[in-house]
Amino acid sequence: MAEGEMIGVKTRSRVIAHFLLVIGVIVVAFPIYYVFIASTHSIQTILRPPLPLLPGPELVENYGDAMTGGVGRIGGVGVGRLLWNTTVVALGIAFGKIVISMASAYAIVFFRFPLRMVCFWLIFITLMLPVEVRILPTYKVMVDLKLIDTYAGLILPLVASATGTLLFRQFFMTIPNELLEAARVDGAGPWRFFKDILLPLSLTNIAALFVILFIYGWTQYLWPLLVTNSNSMNTIVIALKKMISFADADTPWNLVMVTSMLAILPPILVVVLMQRWFVKGLVETEK
């Protein structure tokens, strides 16, 4: 094949690849754009199809009403409060899982104690237990400890992570023994070795796991639904469900669309801002 023909084939392949990529982006992004457009129109416009494809004049009013005025179907709680609740829960779950996972993986890999591997396999086996199996006993514990309608009740039952422990264990096992021996020669104890050597080496893995766990905490539905009775303690996903009525006329669709947009933005920002660390952490974990 001549050089010119090869260049032509590569160019066509590149054009086709970019065309398919653009089509994929449009398919994924159009529903989000549609929700944004709906959030800028009045409820009358939304209920009278077809919906315009350009932003409407109600953007400032709709977002202002949702953030400060409160939503009637959830007791007048503003979206600002819902975002705060969900952020606290998502960050608490993410940081809690990372801390517990690192601590348990550190103990399993670098310490020698009786039944060490039995402990690891007991942690690993919990991956096979569906969440529904643990719901009732966990809820009973939260009731007994009077943690219903509290941030602790929303976060603590979800902070243990067998997946995080497994990922950190696999990474810690790639640490050369020579590094551990050098730390011992320098007089570094277990805490100093963890803080000064292991923690800096684990930053990319922590970042990758943080993105996954933050989104996991942000999108929680079943547990927050059970453990919250007060509208002021609802997460944004629970509030969205409560805002939607069986009758279209009874649903404030403009505020629903605003709440949906504000619920989408934080996870998107986390992924975009930490994309490089996320990919790097996954690649290093694979190695």
Rank of each mutant, 00 (worst) to 15 (best):
G164C: 10
V211E: 01
K241I: 06
G24A: 14
T174D: 05
K146L: 13
G217C: 07
S42I: 02
V28H: 06
V35K: 01
N62Q: 09
W277G: 05
I46R: 08
F172P: 00
V109D: 07
Q44D: 14
A29R: 04
A188F: 13
A208P: 02
Q170E: 13
K242Y: 11
A207C: 13
F110R: 08
F111Y: 10
S104K: 00
P267G: 12
N234L: 15
G153V: 03
V60A: 13
L226V: 11
T219P: 00
V27W: 13
G78S: 13
P157M: 11
G96N: 06
L255R: 08
I264Y: 09
G76V: 07
N234A: 02
A29Y: 11
Q220M: 12
F172Y: 15
H41I: 04
T86L: 00
T163H: 11
G92W: 04
F95G: 04
P137M: 06
I98P: 03
I123M: 11
S13R: 13
M1V: 11
V99H: 00
P57W: 05
L147K: 05
A188D: 12
D186L: 07
P190Y: 04
T259F: 10
L203K: 15
A249D: 09
G78P: 01
V133I: 14
L21Q: 11
F124M: 12
I32H: 02
E58P: 01
V237R: 06
L21G: 14
I100R: 03
A182K: 05
T150H: 07
A183Y: 09
A90I: 05
P267L: 12
I125F: 14
I238W: 03
V237D: 07
A188R: 11
V141D: 08
A263R: 02
G8L: 12
P190T: 04
R48H: 14
N231Y: 15
L180S: 06
E181Q: 13
T163I: 12
L265Q: 05
L54K: 08
G96Q: 07
I215A: 03
G217R: 01
Y33P: 00
G281L: 06
R116F: 07
R12Q: 13
I43C: 05
G189D: 13
L129P: 01
M142S: 09
V227G: 04
Q170A: 15
I37G: 05
V35G: 08
M6E: 11
M142A: 15
S260R: 01
G56P: 09
I46Y: 05
L273Q: 00
T204N: 14
T126E: 10
E132Q: 15
A183N: 01
S202R: 03
A103S: 11
T68S: 12
V141R: 02
G153L: 07
E284A: 15
Q220W: 03
V271W: 06
T11S: 09
A188Y: 10
E178C: 02
R276Q: 09
V28T: 11
G281S: 10
M274P: 00
A247M: 08
T228P: 04
L166C: 01
D65Q: 14
